[in-house]
Computed example of a mutant assay.
Amino acid sequence: MESRADIKRRLILDTAKKIVMENDYNALTLDAVAKQAGISKGGLLYHFPNKELLMKGLAEYVLEEYEKNFKKYGENDSTKTGKWTRALIEVTKFDLEHNAELNVGLFAASILDPEMSKNISDRYKSTLKKLEDDGINPLTATIIRLALDGLYYSQTLNVAPLEKERVNEVIQQLLKMSKSEG
């Protein structure tokens, strides 16, 4: 069972994520989060004494959600060969459909803290290691990973983002690639 402090912390992080997704990083202020979450600023400061720690907390929170979903997709795939590659495709698809929430926290952390950026990179490498040992051609897994990275950055940075239908077509092609390699 979650404690009240954990519930409040999650409320703060969900609110911060929503503010950034609906606006941008500049809209993320401690006052805005407290007001939108319906808590006192003192209650917010108890959990996150400053904006930098709030953004780091947001990055950690989103990364934990990513890892939980990645694991869930992989463990629920009954076909052993390529299951972690498909898990990465599915978690990316889910994330892209929900405004690429993963990148909100990851970009925030990278900008603020090189050590956090290294932590994120190291954790992502553990995901990539699962792809290397996935039973499909490692080059195919790498191409799939890079295509997914491209979808993220295109959408997040608004660099010629694809239409939703084309994104779905790309995802379906990547899934086929992960299956045909087995």
Results as ranks from 00 to 15, higher is better:
I39Y: 09
S40N: 03
K41M: 09
G42C: 01
G42W: 02
G43H: 02
F48Q: 01
P49R: 04
N50Q: 06
K51F: 08
E52L: 03
E52V: 14
L53W: 13
L54R: 04
L54C: 11
L58F: 02
L58C: 03
L58D: 00
A59Q: 05
E60R: 08
V62E: 13
V62A: 10
L63A: 08
E64D: 14
E65H: 13
E65C: 08
E65Q: 15
Y66S: 01
E67R: 12
K68Q: 05
K68I: 06
F70T: 01
Y73L: 03
Y73S: 00
Y73G: 01
T79G: 09
K80M: 12
G82E: 08
K83I: 04
R86V: 06
R86F: 09
E90D: 15
T92D: 08
K93N: 14
F94Y: 12
L96C: 04
E97G: 13
E97R: 12
E97P: 04
N99L: 06
L102G: 05
V104R: 00
V104A: 02
G105N: 06
A108R: 00
A109D: 01
S110G: 15
P114G: 06
E115G: 10
K118T: 09
S121K: 05
R123G: 13
Y124H: 05
K125T: 10
K125G: 09
S126P: 05
T127H: 15
L128S: 06
K129P: 03
K130I: 08
L131F: 03
D133R: 02
D134N: 09
G135Y: 14
N137Y: 07
T142N: 10
T142K: 14
I144P: 11
R145E: 15
D149H: 08
S154E: 11
T156L: 15
N158Y: 11
V159G: 01
P161Q: 00
L162G: 03
K164I: 12
K164N: 12
E165T: 12
V167C: 00
N168W: 12
V170H: 07
I171S: 02
Q173V: 02
Q173L: 14
K176W: 08
